[in-house]
Nucleic acid binder design. Structure first.
Lengths: 244, 244
DNA sequence: AAGTGGTCTAGACCACAAG
DNA sequence: TTGTGGTCTAGACCACTTG
């Protein structure tokens, strides 16, 4: 069991406020307590309160108006994606109003494709562990995701111990002790090939969203390469862009 | 001419550091001066320096390592999109390594489609101003963008004065005095219809990225609705996702 | 005029990595 | 041990909108 670093005060306040917003203790469109009220409630300095509020505002969860107050963003419920921040397919499905589930299709060691080898800075043909999963929304297949990890990173770990239900970030932290620092994603539109179409229950040639992601550690070393197909007739990517 | 608020110290430092990174005065992968060195250089408090650095780190431009230092992210050059932050098609094309240009296809007043009316909280058939533009990369059409603005917002402005070359954010600020606070984007994959295919020089039925965006002011009032088609064989959406 | 969020300061202590 | 970035405090003044 890894030791959980106790969170900072600002992070805890962030979490508490976030919960109050989701629980509608602070309903959409309503005004939050002022910063001075909050610092009294939590008995911290104003800077700490503002650290938490700044993060919520950057995500679009709240809108701050100078001279007026801080308001819960009415339209946060429309959003299912937090590109630029932590985010995974499970939550995407959940936030789209469906019940998520995962079906593991395969988990095996094989030779890297040229694309994977390039992304992971390996030679083509080097051994990688490949995990192929199908995400379902209310039981319907919606996302086909393949993740590839260089074998060196996993050491002598038994494949059977690799928990394929975990989001990729937690998986890397637990099994490689290498937390993800950032990822680079490439979003494209593509026509479904035969196998992908069949797994997602679409016709061959149907339009799908394709997301290719390479995850890096804080030393710029590539950790994982992922390629996913999203059936966006059932699931669209909705995200908030905050201005200024 | 609207009065331009002079920027805050933190914003100015943000801009200076950003320039130094783009100019490779701080090259990719190199270590920045420490926070104490920076606060001496600019003669400000540490909190002010950290405000600037925090913003750069959130965008992925720099990586901060406790006990070590702050480094320029080597892979920032791969990225062409800043979803979740300020961003426009002109910069997308530029950052993809092409020379951008805009061709205005039409600018006129017409009745709102049901989709536009819904997004803009109007009745279907109400008057809107519609601007249709074709973005080119090195002269090749890559993005077809249609923006729709409720006529009420523009008042008695002459259509001819509306500068279609402006990014939508600056356009709203200048002609409506209503700055954009946030936007909600919907990213999907779609098959090109006849007219879209022709304008983008693709075959009918080809896969395109479609982005639908509604822009809101800080009072949650819808300002603009935009629908765009991106030819992602020439231009892919590459963005950075920062972790933690 | 009063209250809000926006900005900035000067200082302190802690956690972490290696100059 | 030294120097980094991470966190927090108490206080000040400013800009803005009108609870």
């Amino acid at each position: 069991m890894p030791i959980t670093r106790s969170k900072s005060i600002a992070e805890q306040i962030d979490g508490i406020l976030r919960h109050r917003i989701y629980d509608e203790e602070y309903p959409p469109g309503s005004r939050l307590p002022s910063e001075s009220e909050l610092l009294e409630e939590f008995d911290v300095s104003r800077a700490t309160i503002r650290t938490a509020l700044t993060k919520l505002a950057a995500e679009g969860l709240i809108l701050r108006k100078q001279g007026d107050g801080t308001y819960v963003n009415e339209r946060m419920g429309d959003v299912n994606t937090q590109l630029g921040g932590s985010w995974d397919y499970w939550r995407l499905i959940e936030r789209s109003g469906f019940l998520p589930s995962i079906q593991q299709l395969s988990k095996r060691t094989r030779a890297a494709t040229p694309m994977e080898a390039g992304a992971l800075h390996m030679a083509a043909g080097d051994d990688v562990v490949s995990i192929k999963r199908l995400f379902k929304a209310d039981g319907h297949p919606v996302i086909l995701a393949t993740n590839t990890i260089g074998c060196i990173l996993l050491g002598d770990l038994d494949l059977a111990d690799l928990d394929a239900e975990l989001p990729i970030g937690q998986l890397m932290e637990r099994f490689c002790q290498r937390p993800i620092a950032y990822a680079i994603m490439d979003i494209q539109s593509t026509a479904a090939g035969g196998d992908v179409a069949q797994l997602l229950g679409r016709k061959r040639g149907a339009s799908l969203l394709q997301i290719r992601t390479t995850f890096y550690d804080r030393d710029n070393g590539p950790l994982v390469y992922g390629s996913s197909y999203i059936d966006d007739t059932r699931l669209s990517l909705r995200l908030m862009q905050t201005w200024g």
